[in-house]
């Protein structure tokens, strides 16, 4: 394993992570809800009674965050290598997988691990492991 020191951004990663943690803490303290983004999106599709208002507001916040960022600074780079067919396949897998597995990086990875939930630990190890394996396969076995 070689570490790419040029790409490594420890301070913005830690600070951005802390903001994510703070946002999750706020949603818990004020709304009593888990900041699990796949659950929030899925709940809007399922239309759980009484739960759509705050979910719409949270998603609106996510959508508006780049505009708020732009008030203060230029947006950080967003580079998407994948082509459209791959994006569609990946999107379908992420959509089905996160609903079937009851969560994603936010719900299981941040909130679940913060609750010391054994289910979320298993889920996080599962999607991280599958993510590592997939990138290994596409970049090193199939040659990207």
């Amino acid at each position: 394993m070689t570490i790419d020191w040029n790409a490594f951004t420890p301070w913005s990663a830690l600070a951005g992570g802390a903001l994510i943690g703070l946002a999750s803490a706020l949603l818990l303290l004020l709304n009593g809800r888990i900041a699990g983004i796949s659950g929030i999106l899925g709940g809007l599709i399922d239309r759980t009674a009484g739960e759509t208002g705050w979910r719409r507001a949270f998603v609106l916040g996510l959508l508006l965050s780049p505009l708020v960022w732009l008030l203060f600074a230029a947006l950080p780079p967003i580079r998407i290598e994948a082509g459209y067919p791959l994006l569609i396949a990946a999107g379908l897998l992420v959509g089905i997988g996160t609903r079937y597995g009851s969560g994603c990086t936010s719900g299981h990875g941040v909130c679940g691990l913060s609750r010391l939930s054994p289910r979320s630990l298993v889920a996080t190890l599962g999607f991280m492991g599958a993510g590592f394996a997939t990138v290994f396969a596409t970049r090193h076995l199939l040659g990207g």
């Binding site: 379908l92 997988g97 597995g101 994603c104 599958a130």
Partner: peptide, 15 residues
Amino acid sequence: GSLLFGVGWGLAGFC
């Protein structure tokens, strides 16, 4: 579900 999600995450880099 988590394994499927991880494969999709690794294919595009988006969660």
